[in-house]
Design a binder for these strands. Structure first.
Lengths: 241, 241
DNA sequence: GCATGCGTTCCACTGAGCGGAACGGGCCTC
DNA sequence: GAGGCCCGTTCCGCTCAGTGGAACGCATGC
């Protein structure tokens, strides 16, 4: 039922939540009362209509910040992301693979252009730089799962064929980094590198993103790879302590 | 039961969760199975012992990022916080009042020194700069609630008497900003200002934090207040659109 | 004035949830 | 090697908590 609150609808009434979740209104109303008591949901007065409405509560935010895949990773990554941002002056993303999508666990810097990424947001892996770089170093079963789930286009430049994706991933493994040239957002270019943890296992992807005409991959690529190596080493040190 | 996962214990076994939550082991086990199915919890192998353990799942992080008090506020605040960070070169905090505590909803920059603040973390309001500034502009019932809940010391410099706190809050209203001179962390000074939304209602507090000897409140105070005014105006514009 | 949809409450009915006990396994100590 | 301890997991008899359709009062729009 909590999934009814999506990023474009953060404040909802009982009937709308019932519609979105497929539960009866009385069930939703009772569950909301319980969740309000647990402070996972907050009951508010919708300023637009004056009606009763509900939104996710601060407690949920506090719990969300304790998710190890975000918290532990961010703690080690943030200083390195700050360095990369200082060095490149671009918007820096840190994301993990979740199923066939990427989920952004940390983003530094607002960009010169509006991009679709958002902390806690998810995008299909094949259509982003960090996603492609993680697909390149994840097992073939993840690539196959992504292909099976479909390769939807985010822009006209998104890779939408299995052969095209497989060839692209091979190229990424050769270069050691991925490029997203307007595949997720028109006018935006992104350079991404893989981050490994203990046992050389893929943990995350890190990237620098900016306006296509202001980014030189030849210059930024090595910087992103350096940050990725630094974070990988930090993760391995952390795992053995 | 999810509260059993606290920031110092992110990975727990069934028995430990049962102890912390006061629920029987079979109840905990069954609830965990349900939460794993909902992907709010992840079942992992504890690398230290090889035993089964559980941690909060990425889905919870995604939901946490949709909490309006974090998401909507951060969206408007981040560019302003970045400006303030650029101008002051200090660690920037954005926090909201929750009951008698402050909860940090956004933090920019790692500091020169380790401070107790953490995104999603909470601290007693009377013992932090952003907390004192919000107490100064919140209703007296919030101040009374904080006093009734006790004024625990975080350092030897924390205000621990009701009269001392009331006098301090009056002073803050006179100056329009708060100072935290080593009250939450030794060696650390913080300058904070209040952020208002529609109807001149207090929404948040913003602050710049750094090493005591590297911060001049006379210089940084106006910068923090400027950022607070800018964010307040952005919030009022946002509310009326 | 009527229709529609809202949030809220009621209550007869149903099966889902509870949690103590037992199990097998791993680890540690003697 | 045996015994003790604690772990995670499973079972199942028992109990009442949860369900959701219907009805209500209210607000809005035509």
């Amino acid at each position: 039922m909590l999934e009814a609150f999506d990023p474009s609808s953060l404040v909802l009434g009982v009937s709308e939540i019932a519609r979105r979740s497929g539960l009866p209104k009385s069930t939703v109303h009772r569950l909301l009362t319980d969740l309000v008591a647990e402070r996972l949901i907050v009951k508010v007065r919708d300023p637009a209509t004056g009606a009763t409405a509900y939104q996710l509560g601060l407690r949920l935010f506090e719990l969300g910040e304790r998710v190890p895949q975000h918290f532990s990773l961010s703690q080690l990554a943030l200083p390195i992301m700050e360095d990369l941002r200082e060095a490149t002056r671009q918007r820096i993303h840190l994301a993990v693979l979740d199923g066939v999508d990427v989920v952004y666990v940390e983003i530094l810097g607002s960009g010169a252009v509006e991009v679709g990424s958002r902390v806690g947001g998810r995008l299909p892996a094949h259509a982003t730089g960090v996603g492609k770089v993680m697909l390149a170093y994840a097992g073939p079963e993840v690539v196959e799962a992504r292909i099976a789930a479909g390769l939807p286009a985010l822009t006209a430049r998104t890779i939408t064929t299995p052969d095209g994706l497989v060839a692209e991933l091979r190229k990424i493994r050769t270069h050691g980094f991925a490029l997203d040239i307007e595949e997720s957002t028109l006018g935006v270019l992104c350079v991404a590198a893989p981050v490994f943890g203990a046992g050389r296992r893929l943990v995350a992807g890190i990237s620098a993103t900016g306006i296509t005409r202001s980014i030189d991959p030849g210059t930024i690529g090595p910087a992103v790879r350096t940050a990725a190596f630094t974070l990988s080493r930090a993760l391995r040190s952390d795992a053995s302590s």
